[in-house]
Design a protein around this nucleic acid. Structure first.
Length: 811
DNA sequence: GAGCACTGC
């Protein structure tokens, strides 16, 4: 085998050459004296005795990916962003030394580590900056401890206490893009503070909440806070602003947006909405103070402080948006050096090149540590794994062996869990992963990264006749390349091999386009309108573009959620009550009227579970199709999925006795799923969603138990009619030649071969999504009766179409 | 008769 030629590079993250002003705080680790243990929990919370370790200014100088690593000492830190290493929240308080005394001792032990964190060392300057300003932008490098330390310091450091004199201290919310880190961080911080999760420190994520009246620090997902803004809990919504209809979140004093650089849909909408909330609260406090003749902020409404925490990228964007007029604070992290190399020439077969590079690393006797290979998708991963396993078998006896592991989201949990098990002796692991390993999962033991430079991304083509989706292989951005590179330097010095040339790297975009510019905005736009905000005039960090907003408007208007550019209908408000996309929420509401919420909730739960109902196993296609045959419903994929789900639930119930939780019962379901090629993971997730939808229905006075089977026997038409109420844009009717033509557009669409309706001729179809590959394929398809279309409000009174508003200026 | 990145309420 000819090895790929790689040349070392001195390239560095773009931020180091950025012209944005940065204030660097926290000095090098090696210079920090580690003081002896304190004996009381209360002393953990710091006092002014830190004059002798005053922070000093520093500059960034990175010749490689060098982020203030201490090269001489090997330090391993608890992985707090990985849910796999964290015990379940229920357990953490209930077992394993739950006494106050043991918690105190644990907190004491953890304090020794906390003190070494760069963020902790820079605490005085950070806190003063936050206290003196409305909004603070903090750039925290990986491993600096920002997410764990800031909330604690804000709660109890004297600098903060002097600004929040009430004995309870400021109430803090800190958002995370993902669930697991939110939960893991709450657990970690509770342990550091010596308390039980749900008391002083808690979390709220979908399906799980651990908070109480005492909770002063609440970790939550961005989506939870977004929902709170748009759809405040009626019992606590006294804080709603009269004119704006905006929940002012008065119970919180400080809101921290963490991982803001990820620029999820919710990051952007939260930043915009919170900026506005902050301004309104400031005005109200001013009025309040005027009335109270200059009395201090002891009134009902208090100021809101915002802290935006991000990786060290492009601070200028946030600075401009929040108009802070000040430097962003840069807190150095704790990363090891990663030597980065590019290929001299473009690679023609990146799968083979990656496998070869991994074997080269493996065969170098000086190379220690596991290898992480980034691939665009599961197909490429399986091919690469195959190549590597074959190569592994040819290693001479006595040579260090390799263990090759694929990693992507669609993999069953047991296969994913292998990443966290220790490999056999004298074996190097080679993990071949999608960008799930870029942010969502941290793999221990990695010191080599092989980066193909590709990812897959869903692209939407917005059309008045419904959107079309396309999953495309794309080049990554420079920021993503650095993120991947960093994965080699979490535990020791590492090495990153990029399978693309330096020239190509230079041509890559600096950052990924933020989600607002490439995702369907209908859900977020509806939430904005519910908050009384005009989406065309909303302050965006990056503008989503007129067309994207207009497409969302059109979808919402079609669903009957809007009566004007900033006016939400009763129906629209109803739709916001459920954690569903607008079309799905519309389907649920229709089901209450059509007498089939029981079935529709199950169907929507499956659709939203984020996986396929059936699984494929290589070389078992015939068995799979035979197994599936017994679930097939003539009306299509939705009814078929419902049948699978109902059978699954029955097996699950019968194999675990009432009130008994034995493992044998669980295996019964697992065995059934395996025999029937059914996706266990998807259906278990569907159960959670179903339970939440049922609970919400009940809360809003709807009877979810109503079912068509109880009234109409086997008639599925109420169910299909309900589906059509949300998916009428996604419908097509059969033509003379047997092809299907869109009702809202002019495309000819085919039924995807994975559908049970493939090769069946039905008069009309509706579908969940339209994807374009070799043709336009409708996926997840059901049949319906064509004349139902004429009964739809949108077609019945088409003369009275809701006009899509014309934005003023701005866009 | 095709081919599926990743999150979240």
């Amino acid at each position: 085998m000819v090895s790929t030629t790689l040349t070392p590079t001195t390239a560095k993250p773009s931020s180091s050459s950025s012209s944005s002003p940065l204030k660097v705080i926290s000095k090098s680790l090696s210079a920090v004296p580690v003081t002896s243990s304190t004996s009381k929990v209360s002393q953990f919370l710091d006092n002014s005795s830190d004059e002798d370790e005053e922070e000093e200014e520093d500059t960034i100088a990175r010749s490689k990916l060098r982020i203030n690593g201490d090269k001489t000492k090997k330090r391993k830190y608890d992985n707090i962003t990985n849910g796999h290493n964290t015990s379940s929240p229920k357990k953490s308080g209930a077992e394993g030394g739950s006494s106050a005394e043991s918690r105190r001792k644990e907190a004491e032990r953890l304090f020794q580590k906390r003190k070494e964190l760069p963020f902790y060392q820079g605490r005085r300057e950070i806190l003063e900056e936050i206290m003196n300003n409305d909004t603070t932008i903090i750039l925290g490098e990986t491993g600096c401890g920002k997410s764990t330390q800031l909330p604690q310091l804000l709660r109890s450091h004297p600098i903060s206490e002097s600004h929040y004199p009430t004995k309870k201290g400021p109430k803090i919310v800190i958002t995370q893009p993902r669930r697991l880190p939110a939960i893991a961080l709450a657990n970690r911080v509770a342990a550091e503070m010596g308390c039980v999760v749900g008391e002083e420190v808690g979390y709220s994520v979908r399906f799980e909440e651990m908070v109480s009246r005492e909770t002063g620090v609440r970790y939550c997902t961005e989506g939870v806070l977004m929902r709170e803004l748009a759809n405040p809990n009626p019992s606590t919504s006294s804080s709603k602003h009269d004119q704006q209809n905006l929940n002012l979140l008065l119970k919180y004093d400080i809101i921290i947006i963490d991982e803001a650089h990820e620029r999820t849909l919710n990051t952007d909408f939260l930043c915009g909405a919170l900026k506005k909330v902050q301004r309104i609260r400031k005005d109200l406090v001013a009025k309040q103070d005027a009335k109270g003749k200059g009395g201090s902020a002891t009134g009902e409404i208090r100021l809101l402080k915002l802290v935006i925490m991000s990786a060290t990228l492009d601070p200028g964007k946030f600075q401009r948006f929040f108009q802070t007029g000040r430097d962003a604070l840069l807190v150095k992290g704790r990363m090891y050096d990663v030597l980065t190399q590019h290929t001299t020439n473009p690679v023609d077969d990146f799968i083979e090149a990656a496998a070869r590079q991994a074997m080269n690393i493996h065969c170098n006797p000086n190379h220690d540590g596991d290898v992480l290979v980034f691939m665009p998708g599961s197909d490429e991963i399986e091919n690469c794994v195959e190549l590597l396993r074959r190569a592994g078998k040819q290693l001479p006896e006595g040579h260090k062996q390799i263990q090759v592991l694929p990693l992507y989201a669609a993999l069953p949990p047991t296969a994913q869990a292998k990443i966290f098990s220790t490999p056999p002796k004298n074996t190097r692991r080679v993990i071949v992963a999608t960008n799930i390993a870029e942010t969502s999962m941290t793999i221990p033991g990695v010191s080599f990264v092989v980066d193909t430079g590709y990812k897959k991304e869903k692209e939407y083509i917005f059309r008045r006749s419904g959107s079309i989706e396309q999953l495309k292989r794309k080049e990554i951005s420079k920021a993503a390349a650095w993120q991947r590179t960093g994965r080699a330097g979490r535990e020791r010095d590492g090495h990153c091999y990029r399978l693309f040339s330096k020239e190509l790297f230079e041509k890559m975009p600096e950052f990924d386009a933020p989600e607002v510019q490439r995702c369907n905005l209908s859900s977020a736009v509806l939430q904005l309108i519910a908050m009384g905000q005009n989406p065309f005039e909303f302050e965006y960090i990056d503008n989503p573009g007129r067309d994207n907003i207009a497409a969302a408007f059109q979808e919402l208007a079609g669903l009957g959620a809007l009566s004007g550019p900033t006016e939400i209908t009763e129906l629209g408000r109803e739709m916001l009550k459920y954690p569903l996309d607008p079309p799905h929420a519309r389907i649920l509401i229709a089901s209450f009227e059509n007498g089939c919420p029981n079935e529709i909730i199950d169907i929507l739960s499956i659709i939203n579970a984020g996986g396929t109902v059936f699984v494929d196993r290589p070389n078992e296609r015939e068995e799979a199709s035979n197994a599936r045959a017994k679930f097939v419903h003539r009306d299509g994929d939705h009814m078929t999925a419902l049948k699978v789900f109902r059978d699954f639930l029955e097996i699950k119930h019968s194999s675990s006795g009432p009130g008994l939780k034995n493992n044998k019962g669980g295996q019964g379901v697992v065995g059934w799923c395996k025999d029937n090629f059914v996706n266990h993971k998807t259906l278990n997730q569907a159960i959670k969603i179903r339970d939440q939808l049922r609970e919400l229905s009940t809360r809003y006075g709807k009877d979810w138990k109503v079912s068509t089977s109880s009234t109409n026997g086997d008639d599925s038409s109420p169910i299909l009619r309900s589906l059509l109420m949300g998916l009428f844009m996604n419908s097509a009717v059969i033509q003379a030649d047997g092809s299907y033509k869109q009702t809202a557009g002019s495309l000819t669409v085919k039924i995807h071969p994975s559908s049970v309706l493939m090769s069946k001729k039905v008069p009309a179809i509706l579908y969940d999504e339209l994807t374009v590959t070799s043709s336009f394929y409708a996926r997840n398809v059901s049949s319906f009766e064509q004349h139902w279309l004429t009964e739809l409000p949108i077609f019945a009174k088409s003369a009275k179409r809701v006009a899509v508003p014309v934005g003023k200026g701005q866009l």
